[in-house]
Amino acid sequence: MNPRDQLLDPRLRRVIGVGAVIGVVALCLFGLWGAPPDDRQGEAMRLLYLHVPSAWLAYFAFLVTAIASALFLWPRTRSIVWDRVAGASAELGVIFTGLTLVVGSLWGRPIWGVWWAWDARLVTTAVLFFLYLGYLALRRIPGDAISTGKRNAIAALIAFVDVPIVHFSVEWWRTLHQKATVFNPELSARIEGVQALTLWIAVLAFTLVYVYLLDRRYRLAVIDDVLAEQALEQAIKIRTGDNPGVGR
């Protein structure tokens, strides 16, 4: 098997998969039962154990897409591997951004009293979702590997500009969405104890799930590429067989 056909060593992938399952089980136990309800938010706080890691993974997935795209654009490091990694990571990023928006909306209804607010953080996150949805649509346009790879990479780097805008939106504009909590030393009500532990378990579990799914999506991209190549060869053979004049 070509080493490019697998992103992770199968043994490492199994370890990550088992780790992800253990992490998700621990997250269910702590997030739904072990962690106490919040003093102000009550039980709705439990949605933040999904919302925060989803948002972190969305940022991380799009960062991986941007790095892989830059490596593809750089002639010395150009490889189909980076284009596949970029596409796989962007697909996961879109899923996690979608979950961030939906779970955030479910949290917003009991806490803010509304499903949606035209708030800078929410709007820029929605823009991020649609930007990368467009990027995934762009990837489906056929062409030769190098030119489509370059086109995809440029689009991914342009879309990535929105990631720091999303992150700093709560600092740049006055928003309903709260500012950074976990690493904010100025905040009087810091997250700590079992609630902080649960949040870290959630981040770890989601990261392991992301790495596992990235490897699986990469493998699928390899298979799709090989099948598409075989189908093209087959079509050329049929065509040249039907028309003896063609291909001489």
Binding site: C28, E43, A44, L50, I95, L99, V103, L106, V209
Partner: peptide, 19 residues
């Protein structure tokens, strides 16, 4: 028994189902 739990369970089930 609690309205907030309805949102919590919906969010958790939805996330689990999507992933």
């Amino acid at each position: 028994q609690s309205d907030a739990w309805t949102y919590v369970i919906t969010g958790w089930l939805l996330t689990g189902a999507v992933v």
